[in-house]
Design a protein around this nucleic acid. Structure first.
Lengths: 344, 344
DNA sequence: CTGTTAGCGCCTTCAG
DNA sequence: CTGAAGGCGCTAACAG
């Protein structure tokens, strides 16, 4: 029954397909006599008519879809963002088309291409690495493109971000406020905007106190738990003799990885070390110990990105606003003052 | 530049659009002289041609999309399922179109309608309630429909599920094995397949030991943390004088909610009570105490659902197989033998 | 091997 | 208020 067309309704009623089309479109129904509208609606219902959005899209040139590029759907942090995007599109009967890049910079280009060949009305890229900037900007010349979540410095594209730099600084000040003087970072990839910003913010805040941050020779390739474990081991190997008392992990997954490695090595949190995570993931308040974490407002970022996309669609000439959401800190048990190093 | 069409290439080369179409389709390129193929490809590349999948979809009658209905994108448990679906579709250049129902039975119908009007090649419903059965089966008569995650008893539709009944039984036997005799359930909605099955499995396993499960007069309206809190309070109010020593929460979110309420009331886990969750969510192994949980293989369920959909698309007449994934139990610290009730 | 023709289903002129 | 005609971009069938 999915193949009932306007023509079928039209011929069943002895009118023209155009009339049916108008009668069924709320914005055009006023052009048709009330009586006809009623007859058409009745027939449509009775025949089980269901408009063909594909045909409509071809004719009108808009598909009612927004492409969404994400690094990795399995990372729980991205779900609220997609949720927010979907929420902002739903009232317009629009749908996100989500595609993953496996956090692989080169896959992004083909994903983008795929979305554009499906004629999405706009693209929201929530999984950019720095090297993707030009490809995205190129696409932006013909289709609205919004950069979200992972920022692209110096890009002309509108960006909807969380203020990761302020977040990094906030983490640092929280730890400094406890009196920590030996701090370290477990960094995410250095070609991804939010991790670079978190790093910058953290370094700056420490520099203000004239404190040098303990340097690790590596960053996490991908911001996942294994990277946290790896970097934690590295920290122990390289600085085991003079471990930091405070650690800023660039996200909660990495923090959890580090936590378990430190624990294996007999270190207790927060007695031996404090740790701050990022994202305030859903159950992170109930881990042991409850993790202090910078709150990432994923839903709001998603919703805002969707709104910017909609605005860009309705008026591509007007420069889009962009948005920057401030961080907040959820303070929990994983951070405390450093244990006093007893002078003999 | 997104508006380069086959015609443009054709006229720039002095050939017919059909020739260009054939040359660019890997399955048809052999019908065209190698030389022409090369010229066409070169021109396509140079002009920045990008095929229009919307037009192609209209012409061919297939869109290369699979509609996916979920209850709630914000529930972290669903992300792996979508990930799995996307994975299975990717090699075919197909994309999932995900739509949320807000776990609202009546919204499902309009979501389904929306997807069908976009002419998805198949629908995977991962968010069904029992009352949606007929609507889905009706849709299944004209479009392939796969029921996933949340089963529909007695439905003719192919179903890709996890064996929740065995999972419920497994939770029960684990607790019974420790010698618990006062067991209770914190149930999810009673019109959602997996919760009903978990309930049945749990009850059956207890009945085998001739043990009655403590009854709560309510189930969770939605399977979220707040429901766990609510039911835990109810348990305390109604059975506070003789609390169960073992609790089976129908998912991890509810378990965490219950855990915090019990804790507020001075009860310690696992000393005062054991608790089992469901899904083995991503950070649940690091909460306090690490939660014993039935493992839900979301990615595999998603991947399998995608594969069944693909098979149904390629041959709608052949009855589709369906799948049932067995549960496993992740045993952690939240379960232990009951504290000996000292006889005076 | 290539061109011609004819739509897929819809919506938007342009005429009445 | 309604009808007729044309075409969005592509591809399949049919000729040559």
């Amino acid at each position: 029954m999915a193949d009932v067309t306007l023509k079928h309704i039209a011929s069943s009623l002895g009118v023209n397909a155009s009339t049916v089309s108008r009668a069924l479109d709320p914005n055009k129904a006023h052009l048709v006599s009330e009586e006809t509208v009623d007859r058409v609606r009745a027939a449509a219902k009775q025949l089980g008519y269901r408009g063909d959005r594909v045909a409509g899209a071809l004719r009108r040139g808009v598909t009612g879809t927004v492409g969404v590029i994400v690094a990795d759907l399995a990372n729980p942090f991205i779900a609220p963002v997609i949720h927010g995007i979907a929420q902002s599109l739903a009232p317009r009967q629009m749908l996100p088309m989500v595609i993953e890049t496996n956090d692989n910079a080169s896959e992004l280009e083909s994903s983008l291409d795929h979305l554009l060949s499906r004629r999405v009305d706009a693209v929201i890229c929530a999984g950019a690495r720095f090297s993707n900037r030009e490809v995205l900007e190129e696409a932006g010349r013909s289709t609205p493109v919004v950069v979200a979540v992972r920022g692209l410095p110096n890009s002309v594209l509108p960006q909807v971000l969380h203020d990761d730099r302020a977040g990094g600084a906030m983490a640092a000040r929280h730890l400094l406020g406890f009196g920590h003087t030996r701090l370290a970072e477990l960094r995410g990839p250095d070609d991804v905007g939010n991790f670079v910003s978190r790093h910058l913010g953290f370094q700056e805040a420490c520099a203000e106190e004239a404190l040098a941050v303990i340097d690790l020779p590596e960053v996490g390739e991908r911001p996942i738990r294994e990277a946290g474990e790896h970097l934690a081991r590295l920290l122990i190997d390289v600085h085991g003799d003079a471990m930091p008392t405070a650690v800023f992990a660039h996200n909660d997954l990495m923090a959890l990885g580090a936590l378990s490695v430190f624990r294996e090595h007999g270190l207790t949190c927060p007695t031996d070390f404090s740790i701050v995570g990022y994202n305030d993931s859903s159950t992170i308040d109930q881990v042991d110990p409850p993790l202090t974490s910078v709150i990432y407002p994923g839903i709001r970022v998603g919703r805002s990105a969707g709104e910017v996309a909609l605005q860009l669609i309705s008026d591509p000439t007007e420069p889009a606003p962009g948005a920057l959401f401030p961080p907040r800190l959820a303070v929990r048990k994983s951070t405390s003052p450093p244990r006093r190093t007893h002078a003999t």
